[in-house]
């Protein structure tokens, strides 16, 4: 029988096992081809879809490549000033304590201009979720050095590579916020392979479900590629990321709530 089974026979609604969540709009994503932002956007929406909490979720978009996330995420969304998403999210959660609130921020937004808001929201233990995309570069403005740019890594504002003597060191803000008593769950993930995506999705789900517990902030870093900024093909950039970013930003949970 299988010899006669055509592709047309398989592609029927009853056989559908995966398609884009309805919580992503039909607007084409503005991200570059192969950019992990698209996958991360989708995972957040898949989790909210699967949890059935569209009507109870408010998302905060940053300034950076994901500034237009509100065009793609089919939920109520707020676009925040550069770096201030954790402050905005703090207020949203405080005035709507039973809603699910997340910020979606890049490394420049979260770990440079918004360091203060990030650390204080974490330290206050706001019951929100922060999704932090770390690609070691300012993507939207055209590939400038970020707080997370690796030593010797080239960017348009460090064209000869990041000289740590002059430009300082990469900021491991995720390890930093894990030290704060207000964070409940801190993890570092990636979205460049199917296995990584499955893990990252579980982490995002946990980070959003944690809001019900009201035990503090859940923080999910996603180390991602910026193939345009790094000037590589998408697959080469993912390989480069594994070889160079992962040693500096190791995958896995950094702070896991202890079972009582």
């Amino acid at each position: 029988m299988q010899d006669t089974l055509t592709t047309k026979d398989i592609i029927k609604p009853e056989n559908l096992v995966y398609s884009k969540t309805k919580l992503l709009t039909d607007t084409p994503l503005s991200y570059c081809p192969g950019c992990g932002h698209g996958t991360a956007n989708r995972l957040v929406m898949e989790v909210i879809d699967e949890m059935g909490i569209q009507s109870q979720t408010i998302g905060i978009a940053p300034v950076g490549c994901s500034v237009l996330a509100y065009n793609f995420m089919n939920i109520d969304m707020i676009q925040a000033a550069h770096g201030r998403a954790p402050a905005v999210a703090t207020a949203v959660k405080r005035v709507f304590p039973d809603k699910y609130v997340f910020t979606y921020q890049g490394d420049g937004d979260l770990a440079a201009i918004g360091t203060s808001e990030t650390i204080h929201a974490c330290n206050r233990g706001e019951n929100i979720t922060i999704v932090f995309i770390n690609n070691g570069i300012y993507g939207m403005t055209g590939g400038q050095m970020a707080p997370t740019t690796l030593p010797n890594m080239k960017a348009s504002t460090c064209p000869y590579g990041r000289d740590v003597e002059i430009m300082g060191h990469p900021l491991k803000i995720t390890e930093l916020v894990a030290q704060l008593p207000g964070t409940y769950y801190v993890t570092r993930q990636a979205v460049h392979t199917p296995a990584a995506v499955r893990k990252a999705k579980k982490a995002i789900r946990k980070a959003i479900e944690n809001q019900k517990l009201k035990k503090g902030l859940s923080f999910v870093e996603i180390v991602s590629n910026c193939n345009s900024g790094w000037k590589m093909t998408p697959n080469d950039s993912n390989k480069w990321m594994e070889e160079n970013m992962f040693p500096e930003y190791p995958m896995g949970d950094i702070k896991v709530p202890s079972e009582i």
């Binding site: 029927k12 056989n15 096992v17 081809p33 950019c35």
Partner: peptide
């Protein structure tokens, strides 16, 4: 197409969510 097992790997890594996957069990 004959080699596709409907594992969804392609779809879940697709940054633009453009892939839908179908799967059927045949005896």
């Amino acid at each position: 197409p004959d080699s596709c097992t409907g594992c969804t790997n392609c779809a879940i890594v697709c940054p633009d969510g453009v892939i839908s996957v179908y799967k059927i069990k045949v005896d």
